[in-house]
Simulated assay, not measured.
Amino acid sequence: MAVLAAALMTLSPATGCSRHGPSDDGRAPHRSAAPAQSPTPSPSASRASGSPLAVKIDNVPAARPQTGLDAADVVYAEQVEGGLSRLMAVYATRLPKSVGPVRSARESDLELLRQFDEPTLAFSGAQRKLLPLIHRAPLRAESPDEAAAAYYRGTSRAAPHNLYLRPDRLLRSAPGRGALTTGFRYGPAPAGGRPTASRTVRYPAARFAFTWSARQGGWQVSMDGTPAVTTGGQRLAPPTVVVQYVEVRSSRYHDRLGNHTPYTETVGSGKAVVLRDGRSFDATWSRPGATDGTTFTAAGGGPMDFADGQVWVVFAAAPS
């Protein structure tokens, strides 16, 4: 298990790049990401019709508010270098017009995405030694190098926090709920649980807080002490939040200072806390293999069902 020392907020050119050149260090992708072209999906679009879209999303203060995050079916939050956080948003039931800011992939993303059937991964780049693994993984890697016309640079923020994706240039349409092979179950809450007003999850240099809102029927999200809203001003409030306790260790990759990237183990089993309906439920999670979804069991032994709607899964380091 690794608790990393503070490091740079962005990776070095050697650790945040596309196959042809840097794309995550403040410079534009190797190919120009021009929005002017007509929204014609890439050749992989027809093959991806039954698979979800996963987008790596920036989550430092300079990247907020994010665009399109409210349309995701599942949002995963993970720890990255320097104890900061990054998001992976998964889209199956609807595709927003734009998503971002898009940032780089990490090694543990490949394990997390194995639960889906050849998902499309939208990302800005990756560490050079990691890129071959991404392109050998059972997914469709769509960085600006592979699909330049799907990306554009916004004008209201400085790079690297201004790279955005137009999903309809990767997928013709949303694949539907059947593409969400997460193992999650949805239905009435189990008996019990504790009335809960809020819950906070802390990383070494980041934190998430979730506060129950009966009016919104969800858990209002705050990041690093600031309310999380969409670019339209709507407060993010997923009906279900999962705090999943996992092993976080050092990966084989590192930033320019030599600090290793955290690897989040999502295969295995452990404890979890599920927030829904203004209550918190102790649970356990199990994912026997990488191609399996994750099942959650309530403390009483029955299935831990989630509320309908968006689910946030926050990976937290299990106590040692």
Rank of each mutant, 00 (worst) to 15 (best):
T10Q: 03
Q310G: 03
E118H: 14
V55H: 05
R27P: 01
G302V: 13
S12C: 15
T196F: 12
T261L: 12
A317W: 04
T200C: 09
S42F: 14
N59H: 14
V75K: 00
S251K: 04
Y151V: 05
L8Q: 10
L170F: 15
A2Q: 10
A197K: 14
R136P: 01
A189H: 10
R103G: 04
G293M: 08
F296A: 07
T182C: 07
L139T: 02
S46A: 15
A62I: 08
G187P: 01
H254W: 12
Q79M: 14
A2C: 08
R169S: 06
G302N: 14
R47P: 00
T67D: 05
D117W: 01
R215A: 15
A209N: 08
V201G: 06
D224F: 11
A237K: 01
V3R: 10
A45R: 01
D24R: 03
G309R: 06
Q127V: 09
A149K: 00
R136L: 14
L53A: 04
A307P: 02
G293H: 04
R136N: 15
Y152R: 06
E146I: 10
L170C: 02
R215K: 13
Y245N: 11
R166L: 04
A54C: 06
A214M: 10
G100V: 04
Y203S: 10
Q79E: 15
E118F: 11
R128S: 10
V241E: 01
